[in-house]
Amino acid sequence: MRLPVLRQDDAGGGCGGCPPQDAPDSRRSFLRSTVAVGAGFAALGAALSPLADLDTDKVFAGEDFFREHYKELTAEDKARLFADIEAQIDREYGVQATVGDPRPLPGVEFVYALNLSRCDGNRACVHACVKENNQSREPEIQYIRVLEMPIGTFELERGNQYYSEKTPRPGHFYMPIQCHQCANPPCVKVCPVEATWQEADGITVVDYDWCIGCRYCQAACPYWARRFNWTDPEIPSDEINPDMAYLSNRPRSRGVMEKCTFCLQRTRKGRMPACLEACPTGARKFGNILDPGSEVSQILREKRVFVLKEEVGTRPRFFYYFDELSSRTTEGVAS
């Protein structure tokens, strides 16, 4: 039996699988390999050393790993789970919160309407939303963006989202954008793990304990309405809103997606969304479109209503409208 003799520089040849036990310097060779393997593992271990800083309470909190999808939770599961979450909030923030699970009300489909003639860009809605929905302050997460648009265009790219001068600025109108709770939501369609879905009242929700953080929904949303927790969210304890719901404003963990839920913890109990109540100009209108007497039904009947990016076919439940005449900034002229 004879092996073909190999070229000296032949990395591709050689005898395979031959532990050189009896070769003259087998012992040294063995020692050398052992040390190399040991060094390799040492380097691997050292490379993984940052994992020592991992806050396991945040990443693998409680029974996270075995937690079931929201839709598979039984009533008992929910009771136990919500109590766990409340305990965790108490540990982390020292706040006695109640985590509820208000379900969609029968015969209700929520619709938002926003009067562009009235909005003056004061951003009260933005921050009321942050406060109500326990959004991270550091890094900052906001569901609403207000665009300062020059009159004469509707190209969103021309809008300024960072304005800080006094508003309203002459020659501009203001356009707040948040989740449009589409009837044909692209974000829901693309989620690989069904962590986001549309509920019966039209609100698209996220199961924060199911999301794997692939951000496909964020890429799919034409309204830039989804926000990702790039790191652990931080909220000062004294700013926690203790009235929470599982599918909306309970504190989120890192690495998951979140979005506007029309404040379902309020609206499913008949209340108004926080952004609406904070709006000092009355530009925001909210209600049940299935009730013909509701404010939003009146608006959709009476006003010149439009939706943003109608061409993408998402059928939003968020409508913009103008008044017949604008009295917004023209001081002292009647409308």
Partner: peptide
């Protein structure tokens, strides 16, 4: 992935 620790969710849903 934001939450690689949850990849098993792919198998479940």
């Amino acid at each position: 992935l934001g939450r690689p620790d949850r990849m098993q969710h792919m198998l479940m849903r």
